[in-house]
Simulated assay, not measured.
Amino acid sequence: MERADERRVVAGVSGTLGSLTALHRAAAEARRTDAVLRAVLAWSPPGGELGQRSQPWPELLTECRRVAGDRLLRAVDTAFGATGPGVPMETLVVRGTPGVALIAATNGPEDLLVVGAGARGGLRRALHPSVARYCLAHATCPVLAVPPSPLQDDIASVHRRISWHMPLNARELAD
């Protein structure tokens, strides 16, 4: 049962390296402030909410919710392993867009919202609005935007080098 006066550090989790970095920072903040860590994963039905309204399929929604829950648990396990985060933790799977879900997962000004502030290219920004920017504009609690892990650039660089040197037929097989 949730207490209204309980402090929370809420972190958005998707399983990406950036979200795992933010989750680790959120756990450190929860330890520092003696708060509960709340890991939140937002999901939307295939085709979005409009598609679901025009052709509802309850079994698909149930399966999507289950898959989202599994993804959240895998991300938490990837981040902390069997030892866990070292603080009390709640996991929450929310149907909706990430920014709205994260704002709804906070309880007020005593909470802290931790989001990843990943690198953003022009095309990516046009197709996927910034969750961090949305949270900064709408949250009633402090928001901590965590920069990407330095390892993220190293991983991307290695991936580019491997892809560049692959023969054409191997690239076709990788797709």
Rank of each mutant, 00 (worst) to 15 (best):
P150G: 05
R171Q: 08
A79V: 05
E2R: 15
L168E: 14
W57T: 14
P167Q: 05
P148G: 09
I103G: 00
P148A: 08
A104P: 05
G118I: 02
A11Y: 01
D34F: 10
P148R: 09
M1R: 14
A4H: 13
R65I: 10
V146T: 03
D153L: 13
L61G: 07
V36W: 04
G118E: 02
M89T: 06
S149I: 08
D175M: 14
A156S: 11
L37T: 02
L168G: 13
L151S: 13
A139F: 01
L113E: 00
H165P: 09
A68C: 08
Q152V: 13
V114R: 00
P56S: 06
P167H: 06
N107P: 13
V9A: 02
P109G: 10
A156E: 13
E90N: 10
D175P: 12
D5W: 15
R8F: 06
S149P: 05
P142F: 02
R7E: 06
D111R: 01
V10G: 00
L41N: 02
S130I: 03
L151W: 15
L144I: 09
A126N: 10
A79Y: 02
A156N: 13
W57L: 15
L127C: 06
T21A: 06
M89W: 08
A42D: 04
D154H: 13
L17C: 11
L23C: 04
L23S: 01
S44V: 10
P85A: 04
D111H: 03
A75Q: 01
S157E: 15
P45R: 06
E49G: 14
T62L: 14
D70F: 12
P167L: 05
P45I: 07
H159L: 14
V93N: 01
R74P: 08
A137C: 10
L60P: 07
R3S: 14
